[in-house]
Write a protein that binds this DNA or RNA. Structure first.
Lengths: 383, 383
DNA sequence: CATGTTTGTTAGTAAAGCGTACGAACAAAC
DNA sequence: GTTTGTTCGTACGCTTTACTAACAAACATG
């Protein structure tokens, strides 16, 4: 396959320019700009792209011919419009030309994977039970799942994205993932050598946030709260994921919430967010509740705690949106409602009143699709 | 196949390229790169710069000659070293060639301003009592202060930086500053037309954070908490200030902290961070305390609240550092100590244990110097 | 003094994007 | 049917940018 060139365009930051920028980097940026317009804007002609991007028709023609030669863009026929002038030749991303592998390692007991198309649609699913395996054993299980998916793909593969639990650095090393018994595991290079394909690994909550950004309705600055066995968060500010200085951004599960104690957590503290909000705790609370009103109260209390934890974060960051991902039957309804009310009671409407808090629509596939979004972003500069 | 390239490419590059990049933009970036190296690295030769930046000696020579023509860089003589080869001609930023005007509008009853040198040192101070004036009147007072400082400058002025209280948008409009009676005031363009010089306006806490970044010891991702009449914060992630979707990032003062009530705040809620931590409240609490132990307790309680508010923010962002700015006699000591202890008790050491919390060393001039840093960053790309 | 090193500059080349100009293809007006 | 005006995509030449290659100047060392 004529592999698309890796994009290495440097972000032009305002502060502390730390690396030189050459014209070819600008070229890569403009390539991504064209791809982005085609990806999100659908069918467009070269002239449309020129108007949209501000580049000249000549430059667009040059870029497009390069992208067509790389197999990333295709001509899809003429525009059917009764307009005067020469009819436009419509272009589109070669949506039927590539596949992406997306992997979700965050669930308990099972690894989930899929072959996805360029639009993040799922073509083929696969799963692998982990049966409580740990360490290298379970790592090989993950690699095998990737191998199976690669073999199942019907088209050239653009890349492999993996959402892993735990702390993941920028080079795709899982520094720490207690649930899987991993510490300092070079997952990215493992999978790369096993497949010969480009691989991107990130924390599952970060991947989920990217999914919401690319395929969900998230606009602007937002945080995605992922509620499962534990509680984690992914943050996207100005279109860019936030990883944190030690790659531990979003590790909210073991932050104590409130000043009135709380249940004992596995970490030894009392009142961690997880003790209120994790799925096992919620289910246990619901099971112990005698009637519907009591069950409602369990959910409302969890929502309150979420609202309490959100208030300082939203205050510090002035977010547009908070998206919650996890079991709908638990999270959607009283819990989310209570979170919103609590948040509103604890912040100033003038500053943060327009924050929206809602459930994600992406369901269980969110991490796999986020992993695919990582590939699209990393390889094509598209989201 | 270029797949291996992707391994080294940034895992998740900047998303959504939204504007074209031309070679001239890259040129500007490289100009800033040279300036940054000279600014922070001191005297260097052209060859040194070439080695440091990765650009060739030829390109560096070209950039430097342009910068010298612009008066931004000067040759300062030959290097005195017993090395073989042609002796190097040392270069430096033209530190004695320009001044910067820095303005602090955040204090109660007085506007502070200064003429500063390129290194952020204060050359001339000026103040203007506001005498409780509001709206346009006090705006003209600010403009007059700027005019006086411009007249007092002994060298060409690189630009004017202004740290204002309230919400400031990216175009230098003060959207809301209740203390000064401002709403939607186009402060930047006002001062620009009054002086004919480049002006940058930002929120005072953001300016202070930039000061700590440029002239203080802050490294990496950090938040600056500014305690005065109210409480505000400035945030710098990856070397870039965070402004928030409605330019209200850092507005932490009216976030409720804790779940055990608290004093009534001017905003109508109970237990806002300001009710514990603002300077007036702290002073009142100290005055009402019967003895030293009670005064200590007042400070410790305020510190606890700060720690409670910090925990979720640091958890979400995985910061390196939190810097506190304000009256030393109140903040340094039991208050900061209690904040650290509370924070540690509420987060997981594994993720956030290496966070440092400390007082700023920049004292009362922090906003003025931050305003100067804004000019350096905006005009030269230097910090 | 010859030799090797380092510095900074000159000359020529490749890449990227721009402006201008032009042929092709179409709709609308006559 | 012809003319006119519009739009699309491309060819050509120019400017900007940074690179490679080569070289003179200035110094230390043997």
């Amino acid at each position: 396959m004529s592999a698309p060139e890796a994009q290495r365009s440097a972000p032009l930051r305002a502060l502390r320019p730390s690396a030189k920028v050459l014209p070819e980097h600008a070229r890569g940026h403009n390539r991504s700009l064209v791809l982005q317009n085609l990806y999100s804007g659908g069918l467009q002609s070269r002239a449309d792209l020129a108007r949209e991007t501000g580049l000249t028709r000549v430059t667009i023609s040059d870029l497009v011919s390069e992208l067509i030669a790389d197999g990333l863009v295709v001509e899809t026929g003429q525009r059917e419009e009764g307009r005067p002038g020469k009819p436009a030749i419509l272009l589109d991303i070669n949506r039927g030309g590539y596949r992406i592998i997306g992997i979700d390692l965050s669930d308990t007991g099972v690894f989930r994977g899929a072959v996805l198309d360029i639009d993040g649609g799922i073509v083929t699913r696969m799963e692998a039970e982990t049966d409580g395996a740990e360490g290298d054993e379970v790592a090989h299980l993950a690699v095998q799942l990737v191998r199976d998916l690669v073999a199942a793909a019907d088209l050239p593969i653009l890349g492999i994205g993996i959402g892993s639990p735990g702390i993941v650095d920028l080079g795709g090393r899982v520094l720490s993932a207690p649930n899987l018994g991993w510490s300092d595991l070079a997952l990215q290079s493992m999978v790369e050598t096993a497949t010969g394909l480009p691989v991107i690994v990130a924390n599952d909550a970060n991947a989920a946030a990217l999914a919401e950004h690319s395929f969900g309705g998230a606009v602007g600055d937002f945080m995605l709260i992922r509620v499962g066995r534990g509680v984690g968060a992914g943050l996207i500010l100005g279109g860019t994921p936030v990883f944190g200085s030690r790659f531990a951004a979003g590790e909210l599960g073991h932050v104590v919430v409130g000043t009135d104690g709380g249940d004992l957590c596995v970490c030894g503290k009392h009142g961690c967010l997880e003790t209120w909000l994790s799925v096992p705790r919620l289910r246990a609370g619901l099971a112990a509740a005698p009637d519907a009103a009591a069950r409602d109260e369990v959910l409302r209390r969890a929502g309150e705690r979420l609202g309490i934890a959100l208030a300082p974060v939203v205050g510090a960051l002035n977010l547009d949106e908070v998206v919650i991902s996890g079991p709908v039957e638990l999270l959607d309804g009283p819990l989310t409602q209570a979170a919103i009310e609590t948040f509103r009671a604890r912040t100033m409407a003038e500053f943060h009143g327009d924050l929206t808090v809602r459930m994600s629509d992406l369901g269980q596939d969110i991490v796999m699709r986020g992993a695919a979004a990582m590939v699209l972003s990393g390889r094509l500069g598209v989201s």
